[in-house]
Design a protein around this nucleic acid. Structure first.
Lengths: 119, 119
DNA sequence: ATACAACCTAAACCTAAGTTGAGGTCAAGT
DNA sequence: ACTTGACCTCAACTTAGGTTTAGGTTGTAT
């Protein structure tokens, strides 16, 4: 199955210009085009997009995502680098979660304090 | 106990210019100054800073934090608004945590896939 | 006295991550 | 034939969140 940029944008809650921006930044080197010039996303592209968005949503900068994508395109020779990068990012995300949980507690305490102000 | 901007920056892992920037944006209306003009953070200011940074670290934009701070300065009349805002933000942070956990799973699966590429 | 460190302001600058606008191509429906 | 909608490029613009720079004050140590 193939998809247009508009369909992919809708499916992933992104804007079309965002997808084009990512493409221009080199995040979609695997993308095909029609004769007309329109971008074509196939199943593989969608699969790849999923991990790209996962990295993006966990705060990885586009420059770093591009490095990951470039390594991915270069095949298994880059597996050690990609592995290292993902392991490091796993640690980052684990820390993000712990921090968010800490902050959540503070917010919940603040809620209690405000409620006690209110009586 | 009183603290200088430099001490507060070090204690909270912020830059001095970041603290001045926040002050300029209206996030520290409670700050005192010395005769010389230097900012003075007392215990109350540090306490307030903690909740401000908590909101910031959970992704709240400065403009919204300022709204919260302004309400806080206006006393208990604003308790309902602050309560509403914190409750809404609690939901946001809960969702952030759930999303991060989802993404963490994907990253961990990716790690397994890369490892299997490597043998 | 002089040097140094830590503070100050105001304005200019910077970066990331997009958005917007102008001008253009094509395929499908009326 | 012609309009409409969905796509395209390239360049300019925007926004948030800062940093940097230039010029200045003050208190303390040498």
């Amino acid at each position: 199955m193939n998809y247009t940029i508009g369909q992919v944008a809708a499916m992933n809650h992104l804007s079309i210009s965002q997808l084009r921006y990512y493409d221009n930044k080199g995040l979609f080197p695997f993308l095909k085009r029609t004769e007309k010039g329109d971008r074509v996303f196939n199943e593989d592209a969608l699969k790849f997009l999923e991990i790209i968005l996962c990295l993006k949503h966990t705060g990885m900068p586009i420059k770093d995502i591009k490095q990951f994508v470039d390594w991915s395109m270069s095949g298994n020779a880059s597996s050690p680098q990609r592995l290292e990068m993902m392991k490091q990012h796993e640690i980052t995300v684990l820390q993000q979660i712990r921090d968010a949980e800490e902050n959540l507690k503070k917010i919940q305490q603040k809620i209690i304090r405000i409620e006690s102000e209110m009586n």
